[in-house]
Amino acid sequence: MTFSVRLKGEQTAMAVAHEMPLLDDEGRVMAVRCPSAGCGAVVDLISGRLDGHIVRGQECRMSGVRVVVSEE
């Protein structure tokens, strides 16, 4: 499973999920592991964006970024 994330003003980054993301009853991705270095939190996807989350006492820079998930 791979997913891409795009921060505002930056190129799309690809990340590989080594574990299956959390899926709902209809097979839609509900949560993925944050690809930010040093974070790795399991984060809910809200309308295709990573939900806000905290790493080392501060909001993770990946909070709110758009995520596209695909199988590979």
Rank of each mutant, 00 (worst) to 15 (best):
R28Q: 13
V69S: 07
S36V: 10
D51L: 06
V42L: 09
D51N: 11
E26Y: 06
A13W: 07
E72T: 01
K8A: 06
S63Q: 06
E10F: 05
L23D: 14
A13V: 08
G64F: 03
R61W: 14
R56M: 01
A41W: 08
L45Q: 10
G40Q: 07
C60W: 08
Q58A: 14
P35R: 11
A37N: 08
D51C: 03
L23Q: 06
E59L: 12
S70Q: 09
V32D: 00
T12K: 15
S63T: 13
L22K: 12
R28E: 02
G57C: 08
S47Q: 15
G48V: 11
V29G: 00
A41G: 07
R33I: 05
V65D: 03
E71A: 15
V43G: 06
V65Q: 04
I46T: 14
G48I: 05
M62F: 15
M1A: 10
V42A: 01
Q58F: 15
V16Q: 08
V5K: 13
F3Y: 15
V5Y: 04
V67R: 03
R6F: 01
V69E: 00
M1L: 10
D44M: 02
R66P: 08
V55L: 11
R66Y: 04
Q58R: 14
E71G: 11
D51Y: 13
A31V: 09
L23A: 03
R56N: 05
E10Y: 06
S63F: 02
R61Y: 07
M20L: 10
G52E: 01
V67K: 02
E72P: 09
A41F: 07
G38W: 13
V67G: 09
G38Y: 12
A15T: 04
M20I: 13
V55S: 14
M30E: 15
R6N: 03
L50F: 11
R66I: 04
V65P: 03
Q58L: 13
R33N: 03
G27D: 09
D51M: 12
I46K: 15
C34G: 09
A41I: 00
R49I: 03
G38K: 13
V5Q: 03
R56D: 00
D44V: 04
M14Q: 15
H53L: 12
V16I: 09
R6T: 15
H53S: 07
A17Y: 05
R6C: 14
R61P: 02
C34D: 01
V5T: 09
E71C: 05
T2R: 15
E19R: 12
C60E: 10
A17G: 12
S47W: 14
G38A: 05
D24I: 06
L7G: 12
S47D: 15
T12W: 11
G38D: 07
S47E: 15
P35Y: 05
V16W: 04
V68G: 09
M14E: 15
E59K: 12
L22N: 00
A41T: 11
V5N: 03
S36I: 01
R28S: 02
V69D: 00
V67T: 11
S47C: 14
E10Q: 13
C39W: 08
S70L: 04
I54R: 00
P35L: 07
S70G: 10
G38T: 13
F3C: 09
A17P: 01
R61I: 07
M30K: 04
Q11Y: 08
Q11D: 14
G40K: 12
G57H: 00
Q11I: 09
S47N: 15
A15R: 10
L23E: 14
R28P: 00
